[in-house]
Design a protein around this nucleic acid. Structure first.
Lengths: 155, 155
DNA sequence: TTTGTTATGTTATATTATCACGTATTGAGA
DNA sequence: TCTCAATACGTGATAATATAACATAACAAA
């Protein structure tokens, strides 16, 4: 991820979440909000137990269930995605839109880029149709090396 | 998966694996072969510890590492796929071909169907190109309900 | 047959995730 | 305002998944 003012990302994510929860009438409790804030600390995915460690500075009594419950809520509301290939979590960049997402996961800088593309959606939709398969959930993840690591990195 | 003579699937998978390992000069040891055989018991994915239980009938001293090592080998050789969304494993239907695979995972009968499609590959390739991202590994998985469960099943 | 490499045996432990049950908060309706 | 039901959280235990570390065994090439 190129240099940017990350405070903007963070604030945008949090205020979108505020609005979204308000609109839906669901409770955006302090723990849930703090967990989302910690996830948005940067553009890297974070693991549940790392999140737990960070959360303890905010709430010393935090336990695994504390984190997993908050994650369940955030994922259910579409505010966070689970990265299956890493058993990790990442903030959703477009929580209001429903679409097929493709995650580009850099193994060097650990940044996760979220992309959506009509071509991919169409290809998937036509596969599903021809298989007569009804989708409930999808995971599209690619591990590799991002542009900026390719530019700066060795190897 | 519709009714079929599964012994054919199993034998095909095993003899392909024999040939492939021979050709590559890698060792297809009894444990590795047995693990592959157990994975191919049906078209459902199987979890590592279930595999371990089954393996114990063959080798009472089997331990987690026994299974995970065999799985590492089989995956490396492309004989087995890891299903990320289930933390489970499934036999590869086309171990000789390299392509982008889409897994259709039925949540009712647990069957995993492996599909490959040029449209999907193209859509992915063009996303990667536009993101200037170099892929090392990919996961495309869809969870849902397969055709035969839709026909026979209730809700 | 020696020797280096690869595979396996074995014990321990790390990592990831859920359960169960009790208490506290919340907010809607009486 | 009070009550009640639903939801969220606290807490301890444990389940499920996976790897580390180090010793021994099997193999294959010289």
């Amino acid at each position: 991820m190129s240099a940017h003012d990350h405070a903007v990302c963070l604030n945008t994510a949090l205020s979108r979440a505020d609005a979204l929860c308000e609109r839906r009438g669901v409770r955006f409790t302090p723990i849930r909000r703090k967990v989302l804030e910690l996830i948005w600390a940067n553009h890297e995915s974070i693991k549940a137990y790392d999140l737990l460690e960070a959360l303890k500075d905010f709430d010393a009594s935090a336990k695994p269930a504390t984190v997993y419950r908050a994650l369940d809520f955030l994922i259910e509301q579409g505010l966070v995605h689970r990265v299956e290939t890493l058993n990790a979590f990442i903030g959703c960049q477009q929580p209001d839109i429903r679409h097929d997402l493709l995650f580009l996961i850099c193994l060097e800088c650990h940044t996760v880029e979220e992309r959506s593309t009509p071509h991919l959606s169409q290809a998937v939709a036509s596969e599903l149709a021809s298989a007569r398969f009804t989708a409930k959930a999808q995971t599209f993840e690619i591990l590799g090396r991002c542009q900026s690591c390719a530019l700066t990195g060795g190897d």
